[in-house]
Amino acid sequence: MRIVMFGYQTWGHRTLLALLESGHDVVMAVTHPRSEHAYERIWSDSVAGLAGEHGIPVLIRDRPDDEELFARLKDADPDIIVANNWRTWIPPHVYGLPRHGTLNVHDSLLPKYAGFSPLIWALVNGETEVGVTAHLMDEELDAGDIVLQRAVPVGPTDTATDLFHRTVDLIAPVTTGALDLIASGQTAFTRQDRSLASFFHKRSPEDSRIDWNWPAEDLERLVRAQSAPYPSAFTFHRGRRLEILSSVVSRGRYGGTPGRVFYREGDGVVIVAGADARTGRNHGLAITRVRTEDGRELGATEYFTSMGGYLTGRP
């Protein structure tokens, strides 16, 4: 099939690589300009660079809604558009142009976690599996019929980085498998159950700020979800920003006020957590490693030289 590829960052790069190795004819690539957004500097393999290496014409756009792009698409005469990590709305006259429409590849188990940063949100929320979905694009974002979907489990110590590496390896088989089904003439695919749908916004620094009213179990997952190279989860201690690099849920139960620097437990320092911490029924978050404002990384027992005081959401 003749394919136009829309994509960005490593997700788009892996998709284009899979298409190049699939035997299909990639006739054009459309990608975004490089961004300085914190989350878009991560996993930033270049779609434009890979396309250029293979002599594929490249268009760079923030949005795919101008007349020149549409004219170039019509001239390319694609059988299908394949998109992955395209960051803006694709209008119907574009996604509906090819004979087989547009196949979007998304790194979640749709209909859950449509939108942005699905792996991070899924890990924070304690999902037991994540994955990749190839679906046909329609007028609602990430809502079209599912052509192919694959899942991988989430382990008890997995970070978002672990899940990225595990799911990015699904892109090639999901993309090429879905194209094989479409090329075979199959047209009846799985409708999404919209009652199960959820849509998430882009991550920002505010989403990494620790709220000590959360249960310790949720905070421990937040720390794992904000693993390097993502911006770390953070709090404030004595008015200064403190990044939490690793933590575990405490063995013991600790009562008091959320955010209290309370007790040394093993290699960690326990912080009281949970909106109902006053009851004494909650586990705390045992911080094990931190990074200070000046960039020093320390074990928590080295950083917290005495107990007492509070970690807070603001300076």
Rank of each mutant, 00 (worst) to 15 (best):
293 E>Q: 14
214 W>C: 01
228 A>Y: 15
149 Q>F: 10
14 R>Q: 15
70 F>M: 11
147 V>L: 02
20 L>H: 10
2 R>P: 02
156 P>S: 03
218 D>I: 12
61 R>Q: 10
300 A>G: 02
1 M>H: 13
162 D>E: 10
259 G>V: 02
313 G>S: 15
14 R>P: 02
44 S>G: 04
255 G>L: 05
296 R>W: 10
165 H>A: 08
271 I>T: 03
206 E>Y: 10
257 T>F: 15
188 A>M: 04
264 R>C: 00
14 R>C: 11
104 N>V: 12
3 I>H: 01
203 R>A: 05
213 N>W: 06
87 R>P: 00
255 G>N: 03
268 G>A: 02
150 R>C: 10
94 V>R: 05
191 R>D: 05
284 G>S: 13
314 R>G: 09
44 S>L: 07
228 A>C: 07
120 I>M: 14
218 D>M: 14
63 R>E: 14
136 L>H: 08
250 S>R: 01
156 P>D: 08
139 E>R: 14
242 L>M: 09
154 V>Y: 08
72 R>H: 15
98 P>R: 07
126 G>T: 05
51 A>Y: 11
170 L>R: 00
277 A>K: 02
65 D>L: 05
64 P>N: 07
134 A>W: 04
122 A>G: 11
185 G>S: 09
209 R>H: 11
51 A>T: 07
260 R>I: 02
267 D>T: 10
140 E>N: 13
39 Y>N: 09
110 L>M: 04
29 A>F: 08
264 R>N: 04
195 S>E: 14
33 P>G: 06
23 G>R: 04
98 P>L: 06
57 P>H: 07
179 L>C: 01
282 N>T: 12
285 L>A: 10
178 A>F: 00
295 G>F: 12
163 L>A: 03
9 Q>H: 15
17 L>P: 00
222 L>I: 08
162 D>K: 03
74 K>Q: 13
203 R>D: 03
222 L>G: 05
231 P>H: 10
174 V>A: 04
17 L>D: 12
314 R>S: 15
300 A>K: 01
284 G>I: 12
203 R>V: 06
107 D>S: 08
95 Y>D: 03
113 Y>E: 01
270 V>K: 05
205 P>Y: 06
15 T>C: 02
30 V>H: 10
176 T>Y: 00
27 V>N: 13
276 D>R: 08
139 E>H: 13
55 G>Q: 13
153 P>G: 07
256 G>L: 12
188 A>N: 05
160 A>I: 04
61 R>K: 13
